[in-house]
C-alpha cells in the first residue's frame, strides 16, 4: 500500500486530475501561453537577428514559462477549495501529491515547448544532436516544474494570484540573467556568477550549443547541472510543503 511504486501510480492519478482541472484556468493560460508568446514576439520582431540566433533563447524562455505556469497555482487553489484536505485524507503521502503536481506542470511545459522544437525541425536547422536536445528539454521541463511547485510552498497562501505573483518575482529576474536575451559570455563577471545559480542558464547554454555550436559551459556540465537543480528543487519542494502544511491547513 505504502510502497513507492503504488504511490507513484497514485501521483499519476493526481496529475491526471490536475490536467483536467487546471490547464484551462485563467492564470495558467496567461502565464503559460499568452505571456511567453508576447515576450517571444517582442524579442523577435524588429530585431535584425538570424532565426538560428533567436531560437535558443526562444526555446529556453518558452520552456521556462510554460513549465512554471501550472505549479504555483495548484496547491493554493486546493487549499482554498479544501480539496487538499480531501487528498490528504486519502492513503497517499504528501510527496505523492507534490510529485503529481510536478508531473502535471511538466506535461504542460513539455507539450508547449515542443512547438519551437517543431519549428526547428520544419526549418531544417542543423542540430548538433537532436536526441540530446530532446532529452535536455524533458529534464529542463521537469526541473522548472519542480521549481514552480517549490515556489508555491511559501508563503502557505490559499490565494492562487498571490502565489503566481510571488513566483513571477523569481521567474522574471531569472529570465534576464540566464542568457536568454544576452548570452552568458556577453555578461559581466558578476552577471556570470549570478547566472551560474540559475537552472535556465544551463538549459539556454545547452540549446545554444546544439543549435549554434557555441556555448559558455561544456555540454555535459549543462546537462548535469539541470539534473542537479531538478533533484534539489524536487526535494526542497517536498520538504518545504511538509513544513508549511500545518499552517496551510489551519
Amino acid at each position: 500500500m505504502s510502497n513507492p511504486a503504488e504511490q507513484f501510480r497514485r501521483s499519476l492519478v493526481i496529475a491526471k486530475k490536475n490536467i483536467k482541472i487546471y490547464y484551462l484556468k485563467g492564470p495558467v493560460i496567461i502565464f503559460g501561453l499568452v505571456f511567453p508568446l508576447f515576450l517571444a514576439l517582442a524579442y523577435i520582431i524588429g530585431r535584425n537577428i538570424p532565426l538560428e540566433e533567436v531560437l535558443p533563447g526562444l526555446i529556453g524562455m518558452t520552456t521556462f514559462f510554460t513549465a512554471t505556469s501550472v505549479g504555483p497555482s495548484i496547491v493554493p487553489w486546493e487549499t482554498r477549495s479544501k480539496t487538499l484536505e480531501r487528498l490528504l485524507c486519502c492513503p497517499i503521502a504528501l510527496w505523492t501529491i507534490i510529485f503529481g503536481d510536478m508531473v502535471s506542470s511538466f506535461l504542460f511545459g513539455l507539450v508547449i515547448s515542443v512547438i519551437p522544437l517543431l519549428y526547428v525541425l520544419t526549418l531544417n536547422i542543423e542540430l548538433l544532436n537532436f536526441i540530446v536536445l530532446l532529452f535536455s528539454l524533458i529534464i529542463a521541463n521537469f526541473c522548472f516544474s519542480a521549481l514552480s511547485v517549490l515556489l508555491s510552498a511559501y508563503p502557505p497562501t490559499d490565494i492562487p494570484a498571490t502565489s503566481q505573483m510571488l513566483s513571477s518575482l523569481v521567474k522574471f529576474p531569472l529570465v534576464f540573467i540566464s542568457g536568454v536575451f544576452i548570452s552568458v559570455e556577453q555578461l559581466p563577471e558578476w552577471g556570470r556568477i549570478i547566472a551560474s545559480f540559475s537552472p535556465l542558464t544551463y538549459f539556454t547554454d545547452l540549446t545554444r550549443q546544439l543549435i549554434l555550436e557555441k556555448g559558455y559551459y561544456p555540454l555535459a556540465l549543462d546537462l548535469v547541472m539541470i539534473v542537479i537543480f531538478a533533484v534539489i528543487f524536487s526535494l526542497a519542494a517536498i520538504k518545504l510543503h511538509e513544513k508549511t502544511l500545518t499552517k496551510r491547513l489551519s
Binding site: S81, E85, C89
Partner: peptide, 20 residues
C-alpha cells in the same frame, strides 16, 4: 498510509472537486 487506507471521511465542509 495503512491507517488511511481503512477509512472514509465526510468532512464538515464540502470538498468535492467542483470542476469535475
Amino acid at each position: 498510509i495503512e491507517a488511511k487506507q481503512c477509512i472514509g471521511v465526510v468532512p464538515e465542509v464540502s470538498n468535492a472537486y467542483i470542476d469535475l
